[in-house]
Structures are given as C-alpha cells and as structure tokens.
Simulated scan of single mutants.
Amino acid sequence: MKMPKLGLGTFRLTGQQAIDSVATGLELGYRHIDTAQIYGNEAEVGQALAAGGAARGEVYVTTKIWTANLGAGRLIPSLRQSLDKLQLDQVDMTLIHWPSPNGEVAVAEYMAQLAEAKQLGLTREIGISNFPIGHIEQAIAAVGEGEIGTHQLEVHPYLQNLKVRAFCREHGIALTGYMPLAYGRAVNDELLQRIGAKHGASAAQAALAWQLQQDITVIPSSTKRAHLAANLEAMKLRLDEDDMARINALECNGRIVDPDFGPAWDD
C-alpha cells in the first residue's frame, strides 16, 4: 500500500479528542493516519483504528521516533512499545522525528537502528522528519539511496522549504508536508480565500490543493467533522497556473515549528 496523498494528522490531539478525530476520519474515508511517540496519543489512535472497521491493509499508519529514543539499543524497544499502544504488529512508516539534538547521537547510529527495525518487520518503510540537507545526506549514506521513503517537513504557502524539497526530489525521497494550513493562518488569508472562491472552494482547500498539485502529501488535523470532510474534498480541486504562482508568492520564511533543540535550517 502506498502512502495516501492526504492523511489525518493527530498533533496536539489527546484523549477522547484523538479517538473521536481518528474515528470520524476513518468513517469519512481517510486511510492515512499520522501519529508520533511524543504526541502521547498512540494508544488513542490504536483504539480508534481497532474500532474503526477498516481492514489493516487499507489504512496507512505512520509514527515517529522521539529524540530520547535515538541512542544505541533504544529505538527498536521504543518502536515495539509504540506498536503495542497502536495495537499493531507493524506500522507502514516509521520516521526519525527530529535529528538528535546537538548531534549527541550520530545520524548513522539511529538510521542503522531504523533500518534494522524494517528488517525485523516492525515497519514497512522508513523515513525522516525535520532534517536539513546535511543531515539528509548523512541519512542516505547510512541506509542507502532509495531507502528513505519520505521526508516529513513543515510546508505551507508561507514556508515552502524549496531547497530541501529540491534535494529530496533529486534523491527520490517523497515529501510529506505538515502544518499545511500554517496553524490557521491560511484559513484567514485573503488571497487564498479569493482563489478558493474562484473554484467554489475554501481558503483551506486551496492551500491543501496547492501542495497536492506539487506531489506533496499533506496531513492536516481537525477535531470537527465538517473540516475533516472538507479537507478530503481538496483532493478534487485543481488550481490553474496563475493560482499556483500567486500562492507561491506568499513565501516569507514564515516558519512556525522551530524548537530550541532543532537543527540549523537551510535558508
């Protein structure tokens, strides 16, 4: 099963809210669910998946290894714990959530453990998240060209990450964009509202379609059924060249996710 181009993100969703969001998403037709160890909701996601009724082979599940679990001998046991919480024998994609802060653990060390997890059948595919180009080069060197299934990074009209995206394309690494609506900024953007209205769509749908048409997987999150349904409809929207160019012009290096432990970004 290939990663569906539009998935359901679960960042900041906890407890019953996470269960309800995933359950509603599955009911509406989502077949790609994204979680992470640090989100603290793998058990809730697992509960919703178990009750959702969709066959295991129909739902693509991604989780991410947190930085505390990158050291020698830690990654695989932590992934087994994630699988227990998710009530799964295997996830479809496992990502390194962030490079090791300050390079405390070498990229080669945790990527080798991730590759071993794939060999053990704990995950079908492996990938990375929030890696600048230098770290991506080290990751490729560690596991081999063609082994990194996706790079999940912040992408929206105000932060387009063009250098990293171009590097990934050159090396056959698919792209997954998180925070695609810029934490609500895109919803209130007048240009996106006008472009959406031109097509009988919303600003949010225009922002999602802009990424989808660039072959970037998107994983928006929502707790509202109407928003979850509307996000799915973005798959049907086709923007024209002028729409795409005007949205491209919104780039302003508007990074939202920039923690103290994060790497030095490529400008």
Rank of each mutant, 00 (worst) to 15 (best):
M1A: 10
M3F: 02
G7S: 09
G7P: 14
F11Y: 12
T14C: 01
G15T: 01
A18Q: 01
I19R: 02
E27P: 09
L28M: 09
Y30G: 06
D34I: 06
T35H: 03
A36C: 07
E42Q: 15
Q47W: 06
G57R: 15
W66A: 11
A68L: 03
G73M: 05
L75M: 14
P77Y: 07
L83C: 07
L83N: 10
L86C: 01
Q87M: 05
Q90S: 15
D92T: 12
M93W: 00
M93I: 07
W98K: 13
N102E: 13
E104R: 10
E104M: 10
E109T: 12
Y110A: 01
M111T: 12
Q113C: 06
E116D: 10
E116C: 13
E116N: 04
E116S: 10
A117D: 09
G121A: 02
G127S: 10
F131D: 01
H135E: 14
A139M: 01
A139R: 04
A142Y: 04
G144K: 02
E145D: 09
I148W: 00
T150N: 12
H151C: 08
E154Q: 12
Y158K: 06
Q160R: 05
A166M: 03
H171D: 04
A174I: 00
L175M: 12
T176Q: 12
M179F: 13
M179A: 15
M179K: 13
L181I: 14
L181H: 08
Y183E: 13
G184N: 15
G184M: 14
V187W: 10
R194N: 10
I195Y: 05
A203E: 11
Q205T: 05
A207P: 14
A209F: 05
A209M: 06
Q213N: 04
I216C: 07
S222V: 04
T223D: 08
A226C: 10
A229F: 02
M235E: 11
L237H: 06
L239W: 05
D242F: 07
D243Q: 14
D243N: 13
D243P: 11
I256D: 07
V257R: 13
V257H: 14
P259S: 03
G262S: 04
W265E: 08
